[in-house]
Design a protein around this nucleic acid. Sequence first.
DNA 1: TTCTTCCTTTCCGTATGATGGAAAAAATAT
DNA 2: ATATTTTTTCCATCATACGGAAAGGAAGAA
Lengths: 254, 254
Amino acid sequence: MERTGDVQSVSRALDLLTRLGSSEEGQRLSELARAAGLAVSTVHRLLTTMQQAGFVHFDPARSEWHVGREAFAVGAAYVQRRDFVAPAMVFLRRLRDESRETANLGILEDGQLVTLAQVESREITRAISPPGGRVAATCSAMGKALLATWTDEQIAMFCKQNGFRKLTPNSHRTLASLMADIRTIRKRGFAIDDEEHVAGLRCVAAVASSPQGDAICALSVSGLANRLSAARASPVAGRVVVAAREFAQKIGPR
Amino acid sequence: MERTGDVQSVSRALDLLTRLGSSEEGQRLSELARAAGLAVSTVHRLLTTMQQAGFVHFDPARSEWHVGREAFAVGAAYVQRRDFVAPAMVFLRRLRDESRETANLGILEDGQLVTLAQVESREITRAISPPGGRVAATCSAMGKALLATWTDEQIAMFCKQNGFRKLTPNSHRTLASLMADIRTIRKRGFAIDDEEHVAGLRCVAAVASSPQGDAICALSVSGLANRLSAARASPVAGRVVVAAREFAQKIGPR
DNA sequence: TTCTTCCTTTCCGTATGATGGAAAAAATAT
DNA sequence: ATATTTTTTCCATCATACGGAAAGGAAGAA
């Protein structure tokens, strides 16, 4: 534990919640305690407290703990606040059907790209960045597309503060290389993540802007690089650009 | 505070999270403290702790606190665990379009009906029971439809334990009246909530069952009673029954 | 400007309440 | 039936969460 002004029990409880949320299966008490490095009695007390509040749920039959109803209800508020998510779904679905790949919607929050919604490919794939997931903006097609709407000074400032995450050999690692990419993005109207986030994964993205010109969010299509080849990327990008423009028109005049 | 074995700070933190989740707007620190009945310094410490974990987010420009990204990510896990939610959406949408009313999907959890997904009517209406919301099973069409798949003994036991919530004058208040309703539901294959949950609201529901015959979830259509009249309820119910059956077939053979 | 007022953030001494070990109870395996 | 593992309860200790108070900011009025 660091010497922060944090409330220990709350940090621990949220850590448990996150662990429950990131594993598909339910978790047993003792596993959880071992994984979190806490005493079983402590974990038990924290879990039952969260159970009272409905944030976790205990399945007595299997004696497993799950994420609870209230966590879902609270989390839903995060998306409901962004009233563009619901109307975007139809465009994401169309992109998925046109490309047979996974379609995503994301925004920048605190310099990271957060995936807000996703319509998964029907082919076999696990979601790399599930809803709620986040990535360094410079390693993401949606992130770069949104950054490209900023001024050069803002981008430079941002990079100075956040640096560059080198998630793969292809990730940008200098401001110069990023800015060259940004200029291309501005010129052609869409961004490409060419295995810059995860090796083997390619992604094309375009932003949807309000009539006033403010970027609202980004739409993207992502897929395995050998399926979403460099050759296929361009036509798919065209689809993404069109979808983003139509979506922007739909939500523009409200 | 009661004399439970609860962890005070965690209960308080989750209470704050819930408050943030249930108000559309962001909340200021001092409002939150006043509403929760806690000292500002305490609330501030709890919020910054949750901020570290990404569960709440602070907007410095407006100095307002919001539900954070991680809460969304964890909540999403709740739905992802129920892998029938995504494939149900297309059926909910169809029901909405056929009926021009709101379509819902729900399950029973701990004896309460939890709404997991919803496709809202395009007419002006606010959702009475939003996703994540819960209702006493005996006051809900989906709840009664799911209860009807239980044995009479199980239902009697359930009612003995949970009693009857009398939310409106029409709510069931005796086992006899509920069981009469249950028998009708089993016979005709769908349930009706005739202003038993909220006055002025009618709802028709049917269950979707696995090939093994286990009830998985319920689908429903809900609307204002004067629009979803008694006369209209029957044909709409037919649609719901068909949608539930087709949905069950779709998810059955995986 | 300078003086309000209101709100946020930090600090600190106190005693509350969270902690983990251990024992009891329950479930599961042998 | 016995052994083993896991869950739940209890309790004495002291770490830590608490709230009052003061400092630090922001926004407006005079």
